[in-house]
Simulated scan of single mutants.
Amino acid sequence: MTTPRRILLIRTGGLGDFILCLPVIHALASTWPDAELEILGRPTIAALAESQVARITSIDDRRFSRLFTDTPLDASDAAATFLSSFDLVVSFLGVPESDFGRQLQLLVPKTLFIPAPPSGTRHAAIHFLQSLTPLGIAATDAVPRIDLSAEVREQGRQLLERPVSAVEDNPPIIVHPGSGGRPKNWRPDLFAQTIRLFRRSRHPVVLLQGEADERPVREVLGHLEATGPVLKDAPILQIAGAIACSRLVVGNDSGISHLAAAVGTPLVCLFGPTDPAVWRPLGPKVRVVTFAEATPEGVSEEGIRLMTG
């Protein structure tokens, strides 16, 4: 195909969804290094890829609302002007037959839609990457990676030092008991017992609370005699920096677990109803444990092996 000058990647969804598309972003940037690559999505999450793209635009901008209707856009419409400036669009949103898909293809004929992975088959990141084949891209590295700057790592270290002192001498373990839905959360009493075991081994523990995690964090704290510090209310890049400065992350099937794997921090990831063959975090320091086999003793032992191995 003709070398594109401007490429738009459209990706909405949550943190984990975005991280799993990072290999696609890397493949596009590597294949066409001189092209201007932009993202249309959630800026608070897409900030994780800001070093690889020229610009990030919010899909929630009101100018894009008519894309989701069957009313054709006028050429002077702000959304039409924006989208028609691209030679290639790679979209994780919509299908060709939807209102959004038809509008998009009228404005940018070279549009590739990446569908959701079929259940029970290959890993989602591999599926997404192989979906680029029609563009002539044969990339094979499907492991998401986030290279954080020294500045972001320092911001993360400072964030950790609010609840924990001497981070550099004794980095803490981060425990994230939340996720995108309660069925994906390991029992709070089991998280609490795991925290006790880490503390007995003299490992400081910090609970991480995301926007939707107030209840699971409160429930874990309710099972602990000494409640301990909670990290919350921070931008995603600072959270990534804090995770990169920690010794270990223990969490559910969630975006935070994918973030830990992507920045290279050892991770014990607990899986309940979702299929780890498709949705597990990828990386050399990742151990997946299902709810059926998980015990506080086993999780803490696995975590210590990852930290010391």
Results as ranks from 00 to 15, higher is better:
Phe68Gln: 02
Ser51Leu: 10
Ile19Arg: 00
Glu293Tyr: 03
Ser91Gly: 05
Val217Asn: 02
Phe92Gln: 05
Gly255Gln: 00
Ile304Gln: 15
Val175Gly: 06
Asp61Trp: 05
Phe18Ser: 06
Arg62Glu: 13
Val108Asp: 06
Ala294Lys: 02
Gly136Arg: 06
Ala150Arg: 12
Pro134Leu: 03
Ile195Gln: 09
Leu93Val: 14
Ala125Glu: 04
Gly94Asp: 01
Gly303Asn: 07
Val288Cys: 09
Thr71Cys: 13
Arg215Gly: 12
Phe68Tyr: 07
Val230Ile: 04
Arg187Lys: 15
Leu160Lys: 08
Val90Gln: 07
Ile146Ser: 12
Ser85Met: 05
Pro235Ser: 03
Val217Thr: 03
Leu40Met: 06
Val250Ile: 12
Pro296Arg: 01
Glu297Val: 10
Lys110Ser: 15
Phe64Ile: 06
Arg202Val: 10
Leu132Pro: 07
Gly222Arg: 04
Ala54Phe: 08
Thr121Asn: 12
Ser98Asp: 10
Ile7Phe: 01
Thr133Leu: 15
Ile173Lys: 08
Met307Gly: 04
Ser58Phe: 03
Ile239Gln: 06
Phe191Gln: 01
Asp61Pro: 07
Phe198Gln: 07
Pro171Asn: 12
Asn170His: 15
Thr31Met: 10
Ser58Met: 05
Thr265Trp: 04
Val230Asn: 00
Glu219Asp: 11
Pro72Ile: 04
Cys245Pro: 10
Glu297Thr: 12
Ala35Met: 00
Asn170Asp: 15
Pro273Lys: 00
Gly251Ile: 01
Asn170Val: 15
Pro109Val: 04
Asp60Thr: 13
Gly251Val: 00
Ser84Gly: 01
Lys110Gly: 14
Ser91Tyr: 05
Leu15Ile: 07
Glu168Thr: 15
Asp141Lys: 09
Ser84His: 02
Leu104His: 01
Pro109Gly: 05
Thr69Glu: 01
Arg122Glu: 14
Ala242Trp: 04
Ala29Lys: 04
Lys110Arg: 14
Phe291Gln: 02
Asp189Ser: 14
Pro284Ser: 11
Leu207Trp: 00
Arg162Trp: 12
Ala78Pro: 14
Arg42Ser: 13
Trp186Ala: 03
Val278Leu: 11
Val205Trp: 11
Glu211Met: 10
Gln209Glu: 15
Lys184Ala: 14
Pro33Val: 00
Thr31Ser: 11
Ile25Cys: 03
Ser300Pro: 06
Gln155Ser: 13
Val164Phe: 11
Ala234Met: 03
Leu306Asn: 11
Asp275Met: 08
Gln193Asp: 11
Ser51Trp: 05
Glu211Leu: 14
Leu37Glu: 02
Arg218Lys: 10
Ser30Arg: 08
